[in-house]
């Protein structure tokens, strides 16, 4: 196979580029915000893509890009401390370097959605990748119709992007609603799971002219999808981003497969009709 094809002359697909921490601050007890910059260039991602971030000697982890590509000069991520690699990221300080490969995976096809209403469901850490699409839409506001943004968190301590959510709430060009699953005395807003927000906007939705985005914990998808289908949404208009263990990011290692689909190549962003036949998807 390899005779003279020169395929061995390609650059290593496992080789990271250096990345520098611009700033970082905690968002919750386990989630930390990071602004990163590459040496003199942009990451070149599209909304919804991810990258492999690494510290040589500790390891590598797939992390969603949270900023919109409309933001230039740097990009943002929110990293949840869930294992040894992410724990090491939490120790990074401004000026520290780490490695990056990517961007990888499919993206939210925002250009194809021009003229459509947008309905975002972001639950928990799902808001992190979704934010790249939300801010992309807001930065290109005239391209889209109505924008609805529904966010949910398990409790008050898990809320992410608190200042940004405040600005979305005040922004007249979108309708923003937030809920937390378990209320507390300090919380004056909505309580209940994310689907309980749907009745509050239902009369203003046009299911046949709206693209719905769902990103959240595994358990959430089927409940939101059920509601959307009941309202008359077609599966082709429902976009999900699915989490799997994307170890290599380049369609080789096999960890991220849903049935025979490599999520790092054909996902993480899928339309619902594209995955309906997969038994392991939802």
């Amino acid at each position: 196979m390899c005779e003279g094809c020169g395929c061995h002359e390609h650059e290593s697909i496992y080789m990271p580029e250096p990345l520098t921490v611009v700033q970082t601050h905690p968002m919750t007890e386990r989630d930390r915000f990071f602004e990163f910059k590459l040496n003199g260039k942009d990451l070149g991602h599209k909304p919804g893509q991810f990258a492999e971030i690494s510290i040589p000697g500790i390891g590598e982890a797939p992390i969603s890009v949270s900023s919109s590509p409309t933001k230039k000069g740097s990009f943002e991520m929110v990293i949840r401390k869930v294992g040894k690699v992410t724990a090491a990221f939490h120790d990074l300080k401004p000026g520290d370097t780490l490695g990056v490969r990517g961007p990888f995976g499919t993206h939210f096809p925002m250009d194809e959605f021009k003229g459509k209403d947008l309905l975002f469901f972001g639950a928990g850490i799902g808001l992190v990748p979704l934010r790249s699409a939300i801010n992309y839409a807001l930065d290109n506001r005239s391209d889209y119709g109505k924008i609805f943004l529904l966010c949910g968190f398990t409790d008050i301590s898990q809320r992410l992007f608190i200042d940004e959510m405040e600005s979305w709430k005040k922004n007249p060009s979108l309708e923003f609603l937030e809920t937390i699953d378990r209320g507390s005395p300090q919380w004056k807003g909505n309580t209940g799971v994310i689907t309980t927000l749907i009745p509050k906007i239902k009369d203003r939705l046009s299911p046949r002219n709206t693209k719905a985005f769902i990103v959240g914990p595994p358990v959430m998808y089927k409940f939101v999808i059920l509601e959307l289908r009941n309202m008359g949404f077609r599966d082709a208009d429902v976009i999900v981003s699915l989490e799997r263990r994307m170890k290599c990011g380049v369609g080789k290692c096999g960890h991220c497969q849903i049935d025979g689909v490599y999520v790092c190549q054909e996902g993480p962003v899928f339309t619902l009709d594209g995955i309906a036949h997969l038994v392991e998807a939802l």
Partner: peptide, 12 residues
């Protein structure tokens, strides 16, 4: 799709 130069080098 993406060429793995580590495999290819050894294969070559």
């Amino acid at each position: 799709n993406k060429i793995d130069a580590h495999y290819c080098t050894r294969r070559e």
